[in-house]
Design a protein around this nucleic acid. Structure first.
Lengths: 178, 178
DNA sequence: ACCTGAACACCGTTCAAGT
DNA sequence: ACCTGAACACCGTTCAAGT
């Protein structure tokens, strides 16, 4: 708040005329950014494509504004349920029912959440990690790191989760038949 | 730091005799906690069981000390690579090679990371969410929430990721044959 | 060797006051 | 209606000093 008002050339208390506290301000920013993420039309394709589309949209937005990631994902339920509902609709159309919708939603949400705290672990700068110091598994693998980009981690993660969700649906059908 | 010294009945600067700054102190705490998580014996069973075991161990530890989660997962690479290496060994024994080991490791790491920022979204108190206010998908599903515990979310998430990783391995084999 | 005190540069926020 | 100033209760940290 103090830095904001400083940058705007106002006194420390100026923002409090517009907003009752810091959280309200961050909620407004989160709401604004969330509203820009598009939900694909329910008829636009298979559920896994639609899911990938929303999640990619959210990820792109968080990538452009990483500072808001924590707030946004913490306050999605309170600030704007549109995206949550959209994702849950997709999961329902995939075949998840009742509590499963929450479980599968939470898996995606948690993964997305984790992405914006991890940057330097997902992509540790190979030059920072001194290979001669490491006599371990990581050491032998470090050379492969230079070919990986943030996008590769994202794609692999989302693919893994989508494949996992498909398997959960398949297991469900198997149980029902058995 | 100030609160710590206050609770120890020392002056604000007392901790700086032992530690050069706040991060060094948190690194020491993270290292201590990480060292308590056991890595299963490589011959103790199939990779998915071993993976579930480490991840459950890490999760249990973070559950008991949620304050250290962010530090620990951010500093795993720097502070103590034992757990990272252990997980990567498991993933290699599963059949992942080269860059895939990083990609699959990152998926797990990211998921684990997300868990400790999300508590109140994974388990929103049903009484906090006023159903009459919600005319949406979430509203219809809220009643199911009361039967879900944190453990259910964890199990579903890990199962989904493990199933997803199995699918990634299967796709790899398919490609190789094709 | 272990600790303190004063100081600096920050936070978010309350409350009364100014135009 | 919109903003300021002083103050409170916090932070992490530097630096010189004390026993």
């Amino acid at each position: 708040m103090r830095r904001l008002s400083r940058e705007l050339g106002r006194s420390a208390m100026a923002p409090y005329w517009y907003v009752s506290d810091k959280r309200e301000l961050l909620d407004l920013v989160a709401r604004k950014l969330m509203s820009k993420v598009e939900l694909p039309d329910p008829d636009s394709g298979p559920w896994e494509d639609r899911l990938r589309q929303v999640v990619t949209g959210i990820d792109a937005m968080l990538h452009d504004h990483p500072g808001i990631a924590t707030v946004m994902l913490e306050r999605m339920l309170i600030v704007d349920r549109r995206l949550m509902n959209g994702i849950m609709d997709i999961l329902q159309s995939a075949g998840f029912e009742g509590p499963e919708v929450f479980l599968s939603y939470a898996t995606i949400h948690t993964y997305l959440f984790g992405r914006y705290q991890v940057v330097e672990i997902d992509t540790p700068d190979p030059s920072t990690v001194n290979p001669s110091e490491l006599e371990d598994t990581l050491a032998k693998l470090v050379p492969h790191l230079k070919n990986l980009r943030g996008r590769d981690f994202f794609n692999f993660g989302i693919d893994t989760i989508i494949e996992g969700l498909k398997a959960q649906l398949a297991n469900k059908r198997k149980k029902r038949r058995g």
